[in-house]
């Protein structure tokens, strides 16, 4: 019996082509929606300190609709986002069920102190010197903003600067149990 060697070679070549095509279509794109939001995951437990050394914990945000914004002083999009965050915080800070914190990543407290003063940031800012909170959230950059519902589930958020309109819509969605758009 003549074994078709050419068919074996052809099958091997076809396998290689299929593998190449599969690899080619598996493009690695960075999602702008964080994993916590995609999975509607609970807020990771964190225990940090603010710029005055007072504790800022995830437990302190329980039963509130809260916003967590990762940022730092050297990130240009963070600077560009700050006016929207200021407007947003001024609009909602008096609401009893609302809370917002900023978490500093990859920056030092003294630089951030100056930055917070210069930018007129009035919401609580916590320092994450070891980066553990950033890793627990699975952040992929800055600014990265999350909105959590009162039961502590990540419902909205994104990597990149957010506008006030988007933040307002996310807050409404989180309060009403709606998906973010």
């Amino acid at each position: 019996m003549q074994f078709p060697v050419r068919w074996v070679a052809l099958a091997a070549a076809a396998l290689l082509v299929v593998f190449g095509v599969v690899l080619a279509v598996q493009t690695r794109s960075e999602p702008s929606v964080p994993r916590l939001v995609l999975e509607h995951a609970p807020v990771p437990s964190f225990s940090l300190k603010n710029l005055e050394g007072k504790p800022v914990t995830s437990a302190g945000l329980r039963n509130k609709t809260f916003v967590v914004n990762f940022f730092n002083s050297w990130c240009i999009p963070c600077r560009q986002e700050t006016p929207a965050l200021k407007e947003f915080y001024a609009e909602h800070k008096s609401e009893a069920d609302f809370a917002m914190i900023g978490i500093i990543i990859d920056d030092d407290a003294s630089t951030v102190r100056g930055y917070v003063k210069e930018q007129g940031i009035t919401w609580p800012v916590a320092v994450d010197p070891s980066g553990s909170a950033s890793l627990d959230f699975g952040t992929t950059g800055q600014p990265e903003t999350y909105v959590f519902s009162p039961d502590g589930v990540a419902v909205c958020g994104r990597l990149g600067a957010s506008s006030q309109a988007v933040l307002d819509a996310w807050l409404r969605g989180a309060r009403n149990g709606q998906e973010c758009t």
Binding site: I105, D106, S130, G131, S134, L135, T139
Partner: peptide, 26 residues
Amino acid sequence: CPVCEGQSIADSNAPQSRAIRDDIPR
């Protein structure tokens, strides 16, 4: 590295990679 292409944590200088490098020994 979770935020860059083709680099390991050991090779990357991205903030997330540095945080992971610090986190692993802990």
